[in-house]
Design a binder for these strands. Structure first.
Lengths: 212, 212
DNA sequence: GTTTCTTTCCATCAAATGATGGAAACAAAA
DNA sequence: TTTTGTTTCCATCATTTGATGGAAAGAAAC
């Protein structure tokens, strides 16, 4: 039950933001009484912190999975696979993108300490992508590029509804086009080479196909 | 007074989002009683709509100014100037980026109609950037690239606090680095050429070494 | 100066929201 | 079965928040 509340809270906080999400909505969506929620998680702020922590753990696992797959490959391929895997994963768990962007962009009225226990993984990503030498500290310039890259991905997930509405696309058209656009923008900059024009396997973004 | 309330509301809605911003906060920040706010703008949702409308008008004006400056120049230069002008402007009016990203990414509990003028906006940008033939309808692929580009810019503005905290940067270091990073990612993709480094050859230097 | 219209604020309301105490339901241990 | 501990819900509170009526203050017209 405690876990179910957390899962629902993740989704609701992601959709409406901290202030937009009420404990009543979360309880209702979980099919329980509001006081059961308070029994398990204490005050709203604590539940939110738990959500962030939980989401961060999922991020860590994703990055480990990606790292394993891209290890040893050339940069262009590493980029291609990383974008594919991350985009696919976040489209399946959009609340992660929502929560991350929410934390990046918006204030809460209550003071909310930026949790220093929540690492941003930036340096880890830089190293596993081979954009920085192992052992060496990652330069600020590389870090900000990683940030920009991750953000671009999250934008397409969190912005799905608005973008699809604006562009008049169905979900199954939107997702491959988002991937293509991400590769279009990111791969040349990072690799110095332009991506192959999208053929079926890349556009569909089927993870199995790409990773063989 | 009516105008002053609107200006404050823009800022506060931008900072806290629709639900996080209360009419009382807005009134207090404007130095007036809450009922004066209601006298001028009616209910909260109407004020928010007015804010969006007002902000959209500013966007339109900015784009017109940019269009005038870049007209007739080669693509790489158009990109460079556009990124510069937009970034500078949004850093001076961060609530615009905040509001736009808020609208893209987050739901309101109440039903809120989407502004139908956004799509034409995207097409205007595509045409003035010369990414699409005049008169012709702008393709979806180009539109989504414009969206990605604009979003990347807004990310750096709205994310300033979090990113600077993460990267340990002062504002006057952050802004030029944000611009550089935007150009790093966007110019090669759109122009097929890599941007000249802003000062020395070190822009890409730290990457090239490692990635080859 | 008086009247009329506009603007501002004080007091207040109703609903929403965060939060809690205590009784009931349930489960496990004795 | 009884006891003990855990979990769930009902009822309720205190605050916050969106919203309004009406009095006072200003400003404009006469």
């Amino acid at each position: 039950m405690k876990a179910r509340i957390l899962a629902v809270a993740r989704r609701v906080f992601g959709q409406y933001g901290y202030h937009g999400a009420t404990t009543r909505i979360i309880a209702k969506e979980a099919g329980i009484d509001i006081s059961t929620l308070y029994y398990h998680w204490g005050e709203k702020g604590d539940l939110f912190e738990a959500v962030i922590f939980d989401m961060t753990e999922d991020m860590r696992q994703l990055l480990r999975r990606v790292e394993k797959v891209i290890h040893g490959r050339p940069l262009a391929e590493r980029m291609d696979i990383s974008i594919d895997m991350c985009t696919t994963y976040f489209f399946e768990h959009p609340e992660i993108s929502n929560l991350i962007l929410w934390r990046y962009f918006h204030k809460t009225r209550e003071e909310m300490t930026w949790d220093e226990r929540v690492p941003e993984f930036i340096s880890d990503i830089a190293r596993s992508m081979g954009l920085s030498a192992p052992g060496e500290p990652v330069s600020t310039r590389v870090k900000i590029r990683i940030l920009a890259m991750m953000n671009s991905i999250h934008n397409f997930i969190s912005g799905e509804h608005f973008f699809r509405h604006t562009l008049g696309l169905e979900r199954d058209e939107y997702i491959p086009l988002a991937k293509e656009t991400l590769k279009f923008a990111l791969i040349p900059a990072f690799t110095g080479r332009f991506p192959d024009p999208p053929h079926s396997s890349e556009t569909r973004g089927d993870l199995v196909e790409i990773t063989r």
